[in-house]
Simulated scan of single mutants.
Amino acid sequence: MIWMIVGLTTAGLLVLGFFAVLAYREVVLLGRALTRSAERVARAGAEVERAADALARHGGEFAFTAVSPSVQGTN
């Protein structure tokens, strides 16, 4: 009877260990994905900063030619 308890306990620990390895692998993959996403966000932020800098330098040269609709309407 005691050997059955030892065997079942060992089997349970092996199953838990297996799932721990799977969870660790998924956490590593998630970390890599987050790193890639952070790098993409940083690159996009740098692009926006460059565009904003160019707009700030040449702001007077840009003219808004689009006609904006009137708020009051045309009664």
Rank of each mutant, 00 (worst) to 15 (best):
A42V: 07
T35R: 14
G17M: 06
R25P: 00
E26I: 02
R57F: 00
F19S: 02
F64G: 01
T35H: 13
G12Y: 02
L55S: 02
G12S: 11
R50V: 02
L16N: 04
G60D: 09
L29T: 08
E61W: 00
L34D: 14
V27A: 15
D53N: 03
F62G: 02
T35E: 15
L34A: 13
L16S: 05
R40A: 14
A52I: 10
A51V: 11
G12W: 03
E49K: 12
L30V: 10
G59N: 05
A11T: 11
A38Y: 08
A52D: 11
R32E: 15
S37K: 12
T35P: 06
R25T: 00
R32P: 07
V15I: 12
V48W: 04
A56G: 05
L14H: 04
R50K: 07
R50Y: 06
G59A: 10
A11I: 15
R40E: 13
V41T: 10
Y24K: 05
F64V: 01
V41W: 02
L22C: 07
L29A: 14
L29M: 12
V41N: 08
L30Q: 14
A33S: 13
A44F: 04
L55A: 08
L13S: 07
A42K: 15
L30I: 11
A38L: 14
R43S: 07
E49P: 01
E39N: 11
R57L: 07
D53V: 04
R43E: 11
G12C: 06
R43N: 06
